[in-house]
Design a protein around this nucleic acid. Structure first.
Length: 423
RNA sequence: GGAGAGGUGGCAGAGUGGUCGAAUGCACCAGACUCGAAAUCUGGCGUACGGUUUACCGUACCGUGAGUUCGAAUCUCACCCUCUCCGCCA
């Protein structure tokens, strides 16, 4: 949610900022709502003040045993008028609130303008794609040949976009999550957390737009609960409705969880394999920070995610997303894209975003700064990394001519010393 | 699923229709005392919104929503959540 004060004081800047991400801000509607709100609020509060004064007077008079009929007659007609105004005001504030909540975040100045992923800017690149002296297979062929990935059984159980993992591949999947979690907690200073995988709609609306999310998420039948699309949702909401002391910041959390997404808008995209599934595991890193530190925290967090890829020796590049490719709540996002030999392309494996106070305003997450003043804290998060896609990257990048897959040395301890997966 | 108890400010905890946004204690902040600290004393100390804009004023908020009333933390109804016991269960 944007800062209402800023909208009132400096609307042109907001409108221009949103235009960069191709969001047309309805100035006429906003002004109309605001003018109406102002009128109604002032009038309503005036009536309330009148009523309060009269009631107080009646109270005092009764205490002294005086006759109150005159004062009571005076406020007799007030009730209904006030009621009507209060209802109208709350409806209007509801409308204004809904209007505000559907506006995306304003991209930071350094975010490049653009329409789609083609306009994203590469900020750095790491590693060199390996040259294979045989025809590379994709992770589906590799995994199935190893008896480790079974889409047929998954389809029988749950339909398309699910997978069953077996044996060494299943273990590799588990090893990856452990490895990521250990790296972030032991080397990067994050606290490990375990969280609910079902959350109420306040949590969803706290980090993104609930209306937009509805098509994208899995709702629990008969309850106002959703399966989490990412651990970002429960973890970020730790600070919802809280005022934390500045001394408690930064809060840094790492969380391994499954993620559930309907992938409604991606028919026909990545239908083969494990790239795009309804259920996938992810290790998420989340930071709640003081406003003045959020930009640095974001840069640091991206490096934390990159560390995982470097330790696994997987070539990747870091992309700064353009205004048109960013998520609803983000002010700035870096995507990490890992090299997938079978696709001969870099594919997204992590997304790291800086939200500034956008989520905090939605959540009412504040901190008391050193001066004792209450202000919205800032949130930053990213995948560190998507476990399923990392598994895909390892199978493809570490494949051998004989169909076996070498275990990256960083993972060997997590694999009980196994150095290779073979049929 | 059944029975009971309870939800008040950062925490604890008073308050059962009227100057209650709310006693008191703890915590916290500032000052005094002290060489310094502790103890003690004095003062301050909720959030949001609005109007004016250093100071100030108004409004709302005692789990949530509705109702009764001139007036609700307090009375009525519904819902939510927490705790205890029983049942079931990993």
């Amino acid at each position: 949610m944007l800062d209402l004060q800023q909208l009132r004081k400096d609307l042109p800047t907001v409108v221009a900022g949103l235009a960069r991400r191709h969001h047309i801000f309805d100035e006429a509607q906003f002004r109309a709502l605001e003018d109406e709100r102002k009128k109604l609020q002032m009038h309503t509060e005036e009536l309330q003040a009148k009523r309060n004064a009269a009631s107080k007077q009646i109270g005092m008079m009764k205490g002294k045993g005086d006759d109150t009929t005159a004062v009571m007659a005076d406020v007799a007609g007030l009730g209904e008028n006030l009621k009507a105004n209060e209802i109208a005001l709350s409806e209007l504030q509801e409308k204004l609130n809904a209007f505000l909540r559907q506006i995306p975040n304003i991209p930071r100045a350094e975010v490049p303008a653009g329409k789609s992923e083609h306009d994203n800017v590469k900020v750095r690149q790491w590693g060199t794609p390996k040259v294979f002296n045989f025809t590379v297979k994709d992770h589906v062929d590799i995994g199935e040949a190893l008896g480790g990935i079974d889409f047929a059984t998954a389809a029988k159980l749950s339909g398309a976009r699910f997978s069953v993992l077996r044996g060494g591949v299943a273990r590799l999947h588990r090893a990856l999550a452990q490895f990521m979690l250990n790296t972030h907690t032991l080397e990067h200073g994050y606290t490990e957390v375990y969280v609910p995988y079902m959350v109420n709609d306040y949590c969803i609306d706290g980090v993104t737009n609930l209306e937009k999310f509805r098509d994208d998420g899995f709702k629990i039948e008969g309850r106002d609960m959703y399966l989490i699309p990412t651990a970002e949702v429960p973890v970020t909401n730790f600070v919802r409705d809280e005022i934390v002391d500045a001394k408690q910041l930064p809060m840094k959390y790492a969380c391994h969880s499954p993620c559930f997404r309907s992938e409604a808008g991606s028919y026909g995209k990545d239908t083969r394999g494990m790239i795009r599934q309804h259920q996938f595991d992810k290790v998420e890193v989340v930071q709640m920070v003081a406003p003045e530190n959020s930009v640095a925290a974001h840069e640091e967090l991206v490096l934390h995610a990159e560390t995982i890829l470097q330790k696994l020796d997987l070539p990747y590049r870091t992309m700064l997303l353009c205004t048109g490719d960013m998520g609803f709540a983000s002010a700035k996002t870096y995507d990490l894209e890992v090299w997938l030999p079978a696709q001969n392309a870099y594919r997204e494996i992590s997304s790291c975003s800086l939200y500034e106070a956008f989520q905090a305003r939605r959540m009412m997450a504040r901190c008391k700064n050193a001066q004792g003043k209450t202000e919205y804290l800032h949130t930053v998060n990213g995948s560190g990394l998507a476990v399923g896609r990392t598994l895909v990257a390892i199978l493809e990048n570490y494949q051998n001519a004989d169909g076996s897959v070498t275990i990256p040395s960083a993972l060997v301890p997590y694999m009980g010393g196994i150095t290779k997966l073979a049929a």
